[in-house]
Amino acid sequence: IAFVDLSTGEFEVAEFHLNETHRFYDFLAQLTPQEILLTQSRSEIESTFLEELVQRMTQLLDKINSADARSVTSSEQISGLQNAQVFPSTGRFNFIDPYHFDPEATQRNLNNHFETLNLSGYGVDDLPHGIAAAGALLRYLEETQKCDLSHLTALRRYAFDKTMLLDEATVANLELFESQSGARKHTLYHILNHTKTPMGARLFRQWLRQPLLDVEAINERFDCIEEFRNNFMLCEEFRECLENIQDLPRIIGRITLPVVGVNDLVALRESLEPVQKLPTYLAELQAPLLKKIA
């Protein structure tokens, strides 16, 4: 599997074994994709898998995006797409010819995009299926977006060994992001989220959705919290500085795509000054993780 957020430039890959079906669906639920790219089936087994995938993801995404128009994709629609054109527009699900997942072609496409001889520097050499998915996804974006994708600067391996993968039932029962009544208020995220930037809010949501398993990494975060608590005035100044920073990854993404407006450019200009001050604040702190960021 490969996934990309064009607005922020995040581009990641992962792989699952055949016996990890539930884990695979939990992971897809975590991503909440707006569009899913699939290969056209070449066998009855693949058709069965694709039918199950489309049905389960349709149910999940309709539940998450309850405000959106409901869409139902039947097995008849799936079989009808198998002989469709290379990039058929079907809304939420798009099916492409299997040859776009060819290992050599996808590797070559990724190397050309990142201007590298190979992908070893990204630590994904042992994920051949993930690389194939990433190459096919990149080709699809090149064909459909018709714009500069240079803000996709790296391919990151999703590390399952460092974070916990929460299934949808657990997320719902813990009321992390939505209460049992469907409200967003009075959830754990709503209570704890005091972030000052859109990037921080997204990252904090991701951290809640993917709790750390690495004790050392957990302690590093605790050290940062303790240091900020012990430097209250500096922490407040730091937060005031962050408050003036707009959603930089998405502004840069809009500039690259390009769908940028005047307001985006103004927001970028106004964000540059506070961004330049951040290293000054961090330089006064001693926590290893903060020093690494600085």
Rank of each mutant, 00 (worst) to 15 (best):
S150L: 02
D126K: 02
I64R: 04
E175K: 08
D62F: 06
L149Y: 00
R209V: 04
A169K: 13
S179C: 05
G123D: 10
L127N: 02
Q210W: 04
C241V: 06
T8K: 10
W207K: 00
K146Y: 07
R221D: 13
A183P: 02
F27K: 09
S150I: 00
C241E: 12
N219Q: 14
E178K: 11
P103G: 09
D5I: 05
P211K: 08
Q85Y: 08
Q77M: 08
A294G: 15
G182Y: 11
Q107P: 01
I36V: 11
F160E: 04
E10M: 12
N231F: 03
V72G: 03
L213R: 13
K146G: 10
D148Y: 02
L28H: 03
T170K: 11
D62I: 04
P98A: 05
D97R: 08
Q246P: 00
D62G: 14
L6E: 07
Y281C: 02
L127E: 04
H194F: 07
Y25T: 09
R42V: 06
M199S: 07
F232I: 11
F228C: 01
E12C: 13
R70N: 12
T58L: 01
D126R: 00
N193L: 14
N230S: 12
R92C: 01
P128L: 07
F222T: 03
A133L: 05
Q107D: 08
L149S: 00
H17C: 03
Q77Y: 08
A29W: 11
P88D: 12
L37K: 08
Q85E: 15
L61V: 01
G253K: 06
G253Y: 06
P258S: 12
E20I: 01
Q286M: 06
R56E: 13
A132S: 15
L141W: 03
L138D: 02
A84P: 12
G135Y: 00
R108K: 15
T48Y: 07
